[in-house]
Design a protein around this nucleic acid. Structure first.
Lengths: 98, 98
DNA sequence: AAACAATATTAGAATATCTTAATATACTAA
DNA sequence: TTAGTATATTAAGATATTCTAATATTGTTT
């Protein structure tokens, strides 16, 4: 019986991560980002959400360490920070593809 | 550019599912259930949460179709409804195992 | 510098979630 | 039928999330 406390801690960490994924628009953004680096403008165009809202979602995910930002001139490029997350998102897309 | 709307709908569905997983105690319960059918009492003992709270979490997950319940005498046995979900949970456990 | 484009931040109201406490139901055993 | 055990439901306050609107920042171009 492997460490119950350890298991709970892991659940707490993963649940915190999932909280960020558990939102239609954020998940949509992450699915896009899982395919490669993207600018805010492109994400905005694809998602159709308002600019401040997208920015808030991205800021939140940046704060939580899910994504990384890189400014290039007037545009900011976002990407997924941890390849394991990108993998998980793609797994989920495959798993629930219909 | 393959169905943007379809992609959004899928994100909405999966995000709704993830909302249920995005809670430390519920995720813990699901991790347990991913290993096989379990009674409420056992879940309660393992999780250490209060009885009504566990029952509410289970009721919610039942309502959302994540788990199924089966009464046997005085005890109620729960199990994960969709094997894909069990698989996803195990994948997550492996992915974030440290 | 001024005007513009892209992105970020803040504030606040509306809504949803979480937890505890109290109570109810379903079943078993005496 | 009464008592006891296991599980479920309801109500309500506390806390957290979400969205919109207004404004700020950063960088570019003229």
């Amino acid at each position: 019986m492997p460490d119950l406390d350890e298991s709970k801690k892991r659940c707490a960490r993963v649940a915190a991560l999932l909280k960020s994924l558990a939102h239609p628009q954020r998940l949509f953004l992450l699915c896009r980002l899982a395919k490669g680096e993207t600018t805010v403008g492109d994400l905005r165009a694809a998602s159709g959400a308002s600019q401040p809202l997208i920015s808030q979602h991205l800021t939140r995910m940046r704060r939580e360490g899910l994504v990384l930002a890189r400014r290039e001139g007037n545009h900011v490029h976002y990407r997924i920070a941890d390849p394991r997350l990108a993998g998980l998102i793609q797994t989920m897309e495959k798993t629930f593809n219909e």
